[in-house]
Design a protein around this nucleic acid. Structure first.
Lengths: 152, 152
DNA sequence: TTGATCCTGCAACACAGTTGCAAAACTATT
DNA sequence: AATAGTTTTGCAACTGTGTTGCAGGATCAA
């Protein structure tokens, strides 16, 4: 049901003391409908209404500060934003593992957050102090596999 | 000895059928003196002579195609270029593991290639086809550790 | 020396991202 | 409902990164 999702978006924002304005509902609504990370340009293209570029940037900044989304830098340097749930991480907004793997599909180019993958321990040179190990991966996503039936 | 290094730079370029022009020798010379990845702006700042921005971009493009350097995208989205040896990978130009870990020092911001670290096998959801697993890390580099004597 | 090829610098452009400011929208209070 | 105060938005302008086309210069091979 469309109405109930709108309500949920509204509630999510209110809970975080974010005024549920049009842009914010539109952008968060888009994130809720999509399982992968979105660039600023993607968002501009896919939301219903036209908003100023700056307004969208500020919306994303605000969502990031509130922990609704996080930045993902593509292997080509493109900045994308991934929502913390509804799809990517199979959990609700604001629940996700902080350090998780980002998977980029080489067919569709989409980036998925994969919180289920464990970050392994690795051997590391002793003269460097390792703090965080970050994983990213390339391959073919679920959707493209079922569509194209690629087996390589 | 400075002269002998200049000769080596010259030879490296000639071997690859790259005309050893001023920019090219300057830029490759810089890479040979440095152990970490450099951004376009870094290079512009640190080479002796002033060259046009575009010329430097084209030089980097050429070096990349010839396999002398490779692009590294910083976690903040900044594009850097790492030479395939002389420092970063402990091997000579053009010899390096294609898929290696990039280490970013949180103190100095420099990025190091660490070819000695093995890429582990991981458990991955069966409905996604994993092709390449990429590792990147954050921590404190050798130099900053010895300088600051940080122990966390 | 001549032509062909390669390299460089310049102008111009596209795109991402940021900042300051003023108008508009909203909130709370009376 | 009118007011004052705070937030939010849109606009203009600007910075930084990266790209393209073109013309002049340097280099190479004959």
């Amino acid at each position: 049901m469309k109405g109930s999702n709108d309500k949920r978006i509204d509630g999510t924002l209110r809970d975080l003391k974010i005024r549920p304005t049009k842009v914010r509902k539109d952008v968060l609504g888009l994130f809720s409908r999509v399982e992968f990370a979105l660039s600023h340009a993607d968002i501009e293209r896919h939301i219903k209404q036209k908003f100023d570029r700056v307004t969208i940037y500020r919306t994303l900044e605000m969502f990031e500060k509130s922990g609704l989304i996080h930045k993902v830098i593509d292997d080509t340097g493109v900045t994308k934003y991934a929502s913390h749930g509804y799809g990517g991480c199979d959990v609700h907004f604001r629940h996700h593992k902080t350090n998780h793997l980002h998977f980029k599909c080489t067919e569709c180019g989409n980036i998925y957050c994969m919180c289920s993958v464990e970050v392994p321990k690795i051997d590391f040179p002793i003269d460097f102090e390792l703090k965080i190990l970050k994983l990213s991966a390339e391959g073919i996503c679920k959707k493209c596999l079922s569509k194209g039936n690629k087996t390589t």
